[in-house]
Computed example of a mutant assay.
Amino acid sequence: MLIDYAGPAPQTRESIAADLTDLGVRAGSVLLVHSSLSSLGWVSGGALTVVHAMLDVLGPSGTLVVPSQTADNRDPSTWMPRPPEAWWPAIRDSLPAFDPDRSPSVRVGVITEQVRTWPGAVRSAHPQTSFAAVGAQAADLMSRHDTDCHLGEASPLAALDAVNGATLLLGVSFHRTTVFHLAEYRQPDPPRRNYACAVRTPAGGRRWMEYEDVVLDDHDFGDLGRDFEQETDAVTAGPVGQADCRLFAIPDAVAYAGKWFTRNRGGGGA
């Protein structure tokens, strides 16, 4: 494959760290990052360089968090594209159980996988919507993630909210803002549905598990994020490399989203 080296100068560990600092990322903070490596331009060292740069800025007292979700660990009837119905029983019987140490994250980018596999990284226990963290508060923030609470009060999102963490959208849109889901859980009587996935048994085997949890609905997160940025002064925008980025405090985003859902979703989920 040919590589196109045209365009601006390459991004380096030092240049990315400088841009993060200019954006407002501070040492000692807790930072939840949603990212697109390609949005940064040509990075010397790729995802490894980006993670080094983020940890350089956060310092030894800071904590870096990423979504390490395993979205394919779910009932095949909900997959898109959907496999033939005749396959569903075999998939349910054979899909590997979630393993925090080995299950790769899915469709959340190579920077996330770099963090997940980083020395000393801690991953939360949810078989579908886990998070991974590196840094001073990693173990505490990842310590609780109940299976019947994807992104609510018994998940790392609530822990991030409690310590006044921040979200960085690194070259991705507000559609990827996971913390908005925490506001869904805090709506009165949010709609619920059944979920299913493969989990490990205490003896080290696997089983197919079904459970009920809140409906996760991100269809309007783009509109929500636009209004959040336009109607408040809580969002800082700026470049990191060639990426268009947003930085904001998680409590601000959750509080605004709760009010926005009340106005735009009729007081509950969609």
Rank of each mutant, 00 (worst) to 15 (best):
V240Q: 04
E184G: 04
W260S: 07
Y195S: 04
H52T: 13
V25H: 01
V254M: 06
G135Y: 02
F261M: 11
L32T: 02
A255K: 09
D223Y: 02
T12A: 08
A139L: 09
P100D: 08
M80H: 10
L23I: 08
F221C: 08
R186T: 02
D72C: 11
L64K: 01
C245M: 12
I91W: 09
V51G: 01
T112A: 13
T201L: 09
V179K: 00
D189H: 07
S77H: 09
M1Q: 08
W88H: 15
P67K: 11
A249S: 13
P127I: 06
L23A: 07
S130C: 13
L160F: 04
G28Y: 11
E14V: 12
C245E: 06
L168E: 03
D189T: 06
D22Q: 14
P188T: 08
I250H: 03
D4M: 10
L20F: 07
H34P: 03
D93V: 07
M1N: 08
S39T: 07
S105W: 01
D99N: 11
V134E: 05
Q137D: 15
A162E: 15
L182P: 03
V215K: 04
T63D: 09
A159S: 14
D213Q: 11
A90D: 12
P202A: 09
G238Q: 08
G241V: 02
V240Y: 00
P127M: 09
V254W: 03
L168S: 04
G222H: 09
R200P: 00
I3E: 15
L157K: 01
P202H: 12
P202Q: 11
A138P: 05
D244E: 15
G46W: 01
E231K: 11
N264S: 10
A71N: 06
G171F: 04
D56G: 01
D4F: 09
